[in-house]
Computed example of a mutant assay.
Amino acid sequence: MSAVAPAEFVAELRALAPRYWDSHPFHLRMHAGQLSKHELQAWAANRWYYQRCIAQKDAAILSNCPSPEIRRQWRERIVWHDGTRPGEGGAENWIRLAEAVGLTREEVLDERHVLPGTRFAVDAYVNFARTQPWVVGIASGLTEMFSGALMRKRLTALREQYPWIAEEGFAYFTDRIQAVAGEGQATLDIVVEHSVTREQQLAAVSALSFKCDVLRAVLDAVDYYSGKGRP
């Protein structure tokens, strides 16, 4: 089976937009101002586990990649999340958001609130990056194509609907919006260039679909937990 033209391949990837987590019921309730403080805390604590593991996922992709040029490009993602020194980076900014919604740093870092469903989904994503070809791992990150609009919407909603959250808690979103301003074009270019067979193209589409499932599984876990009304 021959590879399809780049434009058709890109269209297949973009067609997965409805599977992204922007339409998840939990996000819809968040944007409508319908979440309790407890629900926001559960979301922040569980999303932390995903944030903590992103750098490990990207390091796994690097370890499989033979291209110095792509490794140089991709390692910037690790720096963005981990920072160049303590107290910097996207992961640190997420902790500040968790603190802004009323959690302590200690309870975020010891992961006492991380739900089994969240842990299972995120660990599966890291393992996926370790065991799949590097270009397939990179393709899973193409949720960047969909994330910019969601983050802008979420930042507006959080500021308007939950005015008790301190502004310094939004640093993760303000920084990340800038980081994904290109809507994943650099990542898309890598995937298109290095997916030269139809099998590789289909693997890339499957990887992006899997990543969407991982993200939605995290929200499924938090939504179910919140619906139980547990303390």
Rank of each mutant, 00 (worst) to 15 (best):
S2V: 09
A5F: 05
A7E: 15
V10D: 02
E12P: 01
A17L: 01
P18C: 06
W21P: 02
W21A: 07
H24D: 03
P25I: 07
P25H: 08
R29M: 06
R29K: 13
H31G: 13
H31D: 14
Q34T: 00
L35E: 08
S36A: 12
K37V: 15
K37R: 15
K37S: 14
E39C: 03
E39Q: 12
L40W: 07
W43K: 09
Y49K: 04
R52M: 07
I54R: 10
I54V: 15
Q56G: 08
K57V: 04
A60Y: 02
N64M: 04
P66R: 05
S67C: 02
S67N: 09
S67Q: 09
P68N: 04
R71T: 07
R72M: 08
Q73C: 03
I78N: 00
W80V: 03
H81G: 05
H81Q: 13
D82C: 10
D82F: 06
T84M: 01
T84I: 02
T84L: 11
E88Q: 14
R96T: 04
L97E: 01
A98G: 13
A98M: 11
G102V: 01
T104R: 03
E106A: 12
E106H: 06
E107S: 11
L109R: 11
D110H: 14
L115D: 03
P116L: 08
G117A: 01
D123E: 09
Q132W: 04
V135F: 11
V136C: 08
G137M: 05
E144N: 10
M145R: 14
S147N: 13
S147Q: 10
G148A: 10
M151A: 11
R152L: 10
T156C: 02
L158G: 00
E160P: 00
Q161K: 13
Q161C: 12
P163C: 03
A171K: 12
F173W: 14
T174P: 06
R176V: 02
Q178H: 09
Q178V: 15
V180S: 11
V180R: 08
G182R: 00
E183S: 08
G184S: 06
T187Q: 04
T187W: 09
I190Y: 00
V191E: 04
S195L: 02
T197E: 07
T197G: 04
E199G: 09
Q200S: 12
Q201A: 05
A203T: 03
A204Y: 03
S206D: 15
A207R: 06
S209Q: 15
F210E: 01
K211F: 10
D213W: 14
D213V: 10
L215V: 00
A217M: 12
D223C: 06
D223H: 10
Y224R: 14
Y225F: 15
K228R: 14
P231T: 02
P231Y: 10
